[in-house]
Nucleic acid binder design. Structure first.
Lengths: 148, 148
DNA sequence: GGTAATTGTGGACTGAGTCAACTAAGGGAG
DNA sequence: CTCCCTTAGTTGACTCAGTCCACAATTACC
């Protein structure tokens, strides 16, 4: 691969590190860590979600996961329902409160996204989003990055 | 902004968080933290670089910066040269060793980038890179993200 | 000269994430 | 059935990145 291309990619990575940093900082205002929010989100998206799936999917240490699950349970954002067919597994579910908090975080995040795109017209926004989709679609194929 | 668009952006953010996570993990193998490497890189790119610029540019706590600078100095990756016109300021410079180590990190990073793009043909790679440049160029204008 | 701003240090701390050892349950192979 | 290996999760002890705050030294401003 060409030096110029590698350089451009690295430049984009530095740039987007900062963009994502903004979002992470916003989450810092919520008394939940980025990892905790990712976990809440994954639980909200999955049916029959168990901790070990998240350990693999999000590359989180299982002991750390265990403690986060306990914290979220204590704060009543999630509930465990142990599997009837395999008592090692606990299905994780968002509570009403958990859903509300995740929704709220998303609303905050929406505001931030709007800020980031502020001043761009619809055509420009569409160009950016389709660029994003193209990057994701192409890079997902390579296996260099986890699938999603 | 449209719900679908916001959703797509968030999806891309999650995806690219993972991509960047791969690079960060690679750096973990070098006994330097991501922040330390960013500092080394910024020093290498600037002339008359002082710690306080980096504090602002990279959004790092100044006491933390002070300690990192000290560490990098102790390990002889950088040198301080105090300004003749303002004795509060110290210009930061990479040593030969510092340059060598940064180069090496970049070589490792090149390998990782190649892995990430493995299996894509030149046309696809160009599409991705120009998508990245488009995103950076458009989003840089909005001020939602720091300029570079 | 006095006051405010800039640049940098040091101490004390929080909290995210890691490592290793362990329990408990399930899944075969013989 | 039982021995053994794998999977799911827990606990304790720890590291280290990053933050907060008070402070020293120098410079800029009026």
């Amino acid at each position: 691969m060409d030096k110029k291309i590698i350089c451009d990619i690295r430049e984009f990575n530095r740039f987007y590190t900062k963009v994502l940093g903004l979002f992470n900082n916003q989450i810092l205002g919520t008394s939940y860590s980025l990892t905790e929010v990712r976990i809440l989100f994954e639980i909200s998206e999955r049916t029959e979600c168990i901790a070990n799936h998240l350990v693999q999917e999000l590359s989180i240490d299982k002991s750390y996961m265990s403690r986060i699950i306990r914290k979220l349970e204590r704060e009543q954002l999630i509930e465990k329902k142990s599997s009837t067919t395999d008592s090692r597994k606990n299905f994780l579910l968002l509570t009403k409160k958990g859903k509300a908090i995740l929704d709220n975080i998303h609303i905050q995040s929406d505001i931030q996204i709007n800020q980031l795109f502020n001043g761009l017209n619809d055509e420009e926004i569409n160009e950016i989003v389709s660029s994003m989709m193209k990057i994701k679609q192409k890079l997902s194929k390579t296996g260099g990055a986890p699938v999603q």
